[in-house]
Amino acid sequence: MTRLMMAAACLVALCACAVTDDRLRSRFEATLAADESATAALKQWCTRQDIATPALITVDHLPTDGATASADIRRMLEVDAEEPLGYRHVALVCGSTTLSVAHNWYVPGRLTADMNDVLQTTNTPFGRAVADLDFTRERLESVEGPTADCPADTILTHRAILRRRDARPISTVIECYTPANLRTAGP
C-alpha cells in the first residue's frame, strides 16, 4: 500500500508541474502577443520572472555566415533584387540569460540614418532601435518548438513582419524563444 500511495503522490506532483508549465507558457505567450515589440515584451517578462535586475534587453551578435536574402524574404519586404538589405543574427539577452535567438532581415532605406547606425554599431535590439517608427507587427506563424532556423531546444518560434505606419514593411524576423523563459521566478 505504501508504494501505491508514493506512486499516486508522484503522479499528482507530475500533473501539478505540467499544469504549472502550461500556465507559465500561456502567460509567456500572452506577454508576447500583447506587444508589437518582442524586445518590449521580453523586458516585461524578464521583470515579471525576476530573471535579471535591471531587466535590460541587449543583443549578442551571432555569426551571419554570409547569409543572403531569399526571393521569399525580398517578396515579404516588398523590395526588388537590387535593394540593399540588412541582416542581424542575434541572441536577445536579459542579464546573462538568453531569452531568444533572432534572424532579422530589414530594409535600411526605410529607416533613419541614426537607426541604421545604432543597428550596425551597438548591441541595441531592433525593436528598441526603430521604436520611433511606431511600427506594427504582423504575426505570420507561431510554432511550438523549433523550426529549421532555430536551435534544437527552442520552445516557441515566431515569424513576423514589422511595418511602418504607412504599412511598408521594414523587417521580417524569425524569433526562437529559449527554455529559460519558462523557469519560475524566485528560488
Rank of each mutant, 00 (worst) to 15 (best):
D134T: 11
L56A: 12
A91N: 10
C46H: 01
L92W: 07
A69N: 00
A148V: 12
H103F: 02
E141M: 09
C46G: 00
C150N: 08
Y87H: 07
S96A: 13
R48M: 05
V90F: 07
F126M: 11
L77T: 04
V130Y: 12
D50H: 10
H61T: 14
S70I: 08
S142P: 00
T47A: 11
V130C: 11
T97M: 11
A71K: 00
D72G: 04
T68I: 03
I155N: 06
S96H: 15
Y87T: 07
T122A: 04
Q120Y: 01
A129G: 13
E83D: 07
D132C: 02
H89K: 12
R128H: 08
K43S: 15
L99V: 13
Q44D: 06
R110T: 03
P151S: 12
R88D: 04
D134C: 05
R48I: 00
P54F: 08
P146M: 05
A81S: 03
N104R: 07
A152P: 09
R48V: 03
L85Y: 00
Y87I: 02
L119V: 01
Q120V: 01
D72L: 13
L156A: 08
T53K: 09
V143E: 03
A52G: 06
D60H: 14
G109E: 05
P108M: 04
H61D: 11
Y87D: 03
D134I: 10
N116E: 07
D80A: 11
S96G: 14
S96E: 15
I73A: 03
E141G: 02
G95F: 01
L119H: 09
D72F: 07
L140V: 13
G95K: 02
E83H: 02
T98K: 15
H61Y: 04
V118R: 14
T47H: 12
H89E: 09
H61V: 03
E144P: 10
D114N: 09
